[in-house]
Computed example of a mutant assay.
Amino acid sequence: MRIGIVCPYAWDVPGGVQFHVRDLAEHLIRLGHEVSVLAPADDDTPVPPYVVPAGRAVPVPYNGSVARLTFGFLSAARVRRWLHEGAFDVLHIHEPVAPSLSLLACWAASGPIVATFHTSNPRSRVMVAAEPIVQPALEKISARIAVSEYARRTLVEHFGGDAVVIPNGVDVGFFARAEPRPEWSGADVPDGGTIGFVGRINEPRKGLPTLLEALPRILAARPGVRLLVAGRGDEEEAVKGLPAEVRARIEFLGMVSDEEKAALLRSVDLYVAPNTGGESFGIILVEAMSANAPVLASDLDAFRQVLDGGAAGELFPVEDAEALADAAVRLLGDPERLAELREAGSRHVRRFDWETVAADILSVYETVTTGAAAIVGEDPGGGWRARLGLARD
């Protein structure tokens, strides 16, 4: 099958959508499909051979973050040329309402179109205002996928229609096979343990300030604890105001490679996700569970869903630093509970492996290419596949 995939966000800036598009494309290629990805990138940006650069991206505030998008006449021309040269059997557009390549491709394309919606933002005034502009493009879509129930709800509330829920995928084996690094482990330190955090340091919704606020309380109970922070941002600004003895227990690792991230998650005694909102899924939680790391996360709807209602990881009230600290101290002092969380996470994470997720996405591709009009919905029992004749033995 010839598959075209459109990524709306800058290829060289780490993000959940970019990782999803990359991993999906590479998995499909390994299965023998011909895949081309169109993404914002300068012509001199190093990209894999399956990626076609579509021009420089510019930063735009979006959904509590800063998205790097590309739009305009040059981008539109590149979209049209890519579509013409690709002659794709199916076009898979991610975030089709984003004012970037995705919307341009939706306007320009014909033939079977699958769209994946990642955003969870149920009160977006921008989306309400954009509805008359994007609705004609959305009407061209043959099948809609949402990465979570909360992304589906955002789609339904703002644009109508419905979507099947297929979660983000993870190469579970990649994280499970990673080797722990002794320098990132705290198992042998009295009253110790290592806490891991991965995310952009200066993006408030990633929640690092909540974790840093909790750290003095954690250290008062367990003075040997270390916090390992991986991600880009202003490190000095992040720790400003913290006592020197607390700063000494924080190690900033900067940007890390995929291999380093996997090793980090395999090494820590507890992974903490203190995000404050704007999350439609929680891919880092799946990666942590894949790496056999116990997870403690803020009680966002999306995180609760990923963690199986709290069965595969513990939850604390959003932005409650005191509750975070109490839970972290309790868990780090309870090896049996940590082992239970590791086991539960390892079992639960299998549903997110690319072998399962890509098979579901390919089923949608096959449906639209054989004439099905739309994905009409999803139910927890998987009945959407049966309604569309996609049930697997």
Rank of each mutant, 00 (worst) to 15 (best):
G199F: 00
E366F: 05
G4I: 00
T194R: 07
R347F: 01
L332N: 02
P8Q: 10
L31M: 07
Y150F: 13
V165E: 00
R81L: 10
R351M: 03
F73D: 12
V35G: 14
A297Q: 01
V329L: 00
A312I: 06
A373R: 13
G192A: 04
V47D: 06
V90N: 05
V349A: 06
I29L: 15
R144G: 11
R266S: 14
S185Y: 11
F352W: 06
M127R: 08
P335Y: 12
P274A: 07
T154Y: 04
W354R: 06
M255K: 05
I283C: 00
E366G: 14
A374R: 13
A176M: 05
G199V: 01
G371Y: 08
P317E: 03
R181M: 12
S102E: 12
A312S: 10
K240V: 02
L265A: 13
K140L: 13
P274G: 08
I29K: 06
A328V: 11
A39H: 09
R200L: 13
N63T: 10
G16H: 05
A293H: 09
T45W: 04
D360I: 02
E213G: 03
A130T: 03
S75W: 05
E279D: 15
D43I: 02
A325D: 05
R347N: 06
A386C: 03
C7E: 15
D234W: 02
I284F: 00
G377T: 03
R217C: 01
I284A: 11
M1Q: 07
F281L: 14
D334L: 09
I5S: 01
E95A: 15
H84K: 07
R144F: 15
G111E: 09
Q18K: 12
V147D: 14
R56W: 04
V164F: 00
G233W: 00
L227P: 04
V376W: 10
F352C: 06
E378R: 13
R78C: 09
L155G: 09
A325K: 01
V349C: 08
G169M: 10
R123Y: 06
D162H: 03
G192N: 03
N121R: 07
G193W: 00
D308N: 11
R123S: 05
L242T: 03
P96E: 13
A221M: 00
R392A: 10
R392F: 04
A109Y: 02
A87D: 14
G333S: 14
R304S: 13
T119K: 12
A151K: 01
H348C: 08
A373S: 14
R232A: 12
S100H: 14
G309K: 08
V246H: 07
L227T: 10
M127L: 13
L265V: 14
S142H: 15
